[in-house]
Design a protein around this nucleic acid. Structure first.
Lengths: 140, 140
DNA sequence: GTGATTGCAAATCTTTTGCACTAAA
DNA sequence: TTTAGTGCAAAAGATTTGCAATCAC
């Protein structure tokens, strides 16, 4: 039991991830890991934080998102050249991307099967497989 | 026969693509479509052009790369947030990405099989499937 | 205390844009 | 001509960085 401490779960999460649980990281973790699968952009998360009355700079949001990604709490998804999303769903899965709206939607792993993968080049390890399914309106 | 005209093939290529064959487009097309599969970045192509003595602005290189992509002469590949590559190989294939060097390498379509794809959401069409295989050094 | 973290503003990097100028048809 | 294309420089984003101030331990 963690009495009188807000964000108890976020606190433990950061601790176990080896990140010092600062006020900003705690607040951002609480926004991010609310139980739902989220695809957030730095600017957007910064806005949410400010709206929630959390004083945090955009630079710290960027730093924090990358730190969370490094320790495996988030996964970065890149779909367009100037656009990085951070996904709170770190299980094996893929993405639909709606070019028109910029929206990202999860595709569960069992709905997209890679039945054959190439050998990585000598001395290399396959780290990650990113699959993006670009979709557009039928009339578009 | 196209006498006394440099870049005859590039000229036809642009014509057939509905793009006015300007000096800059001709020169860039010749650099790009030399027969090999290339993964180029705008800045890099601009550098090649200048080295080759072709006067062209970076803005025009960007415009041209996008125009070539729109008419199907190139394919854009995005792997990292601020980094767009243009691939001269427009056939169905995928990519290895070396995070350390930023290098991109083709994976032929027959070496990576997607045996099951999800239904696109109602009213949407699947436009493109991008698969990026992130690889790193074994010791990295 | 002490070292990690943060904020701020400036810097960087990539890409786009506005507009006068130039060139292709 | 006349319309598309280009160059330039400036703007626009997105992200990173340097450094002094602040916070967690």
């Amino acid at each position: 039991m963690v009495p009188d401490r807000p964000y108890a779960n976020a606190y433990d999460l950061l601790r176990e991830s080896g990140l010092r649980p600062t006020r900003q990281r705690l607040a951002l973790a609480k926004l991010l890991f609310d139980g739902s699968d989220r695809h957030v952009r730095a600017e957007q998360l910064h806005g949410e934080a400010l709206t929630a009355g959390i004083r945090v700079s955009l630079a710290t949001v960027y730093n924090t998102l990358h730190q969370f990604t490094e320790v495996g709490l988030l996964r970065e998804v890149v779909v367009e050249s100037g656009r990085a999303y951070f996904d709170t769903n770190i299980s094996d899965h893929h993405h639909f991307f709606y070019e028109a709206s910029g929206e990202l939607r999860d595709v569960p792993a069992d709905q997209l099967v890679l039945s054959r993968l190439p050998e990585p080049p000598a001395g290399k390890l396959l780290k990650r497989v990113d699959v993006i399914l670009h979709v557009a309106d039928s009339d578009g």
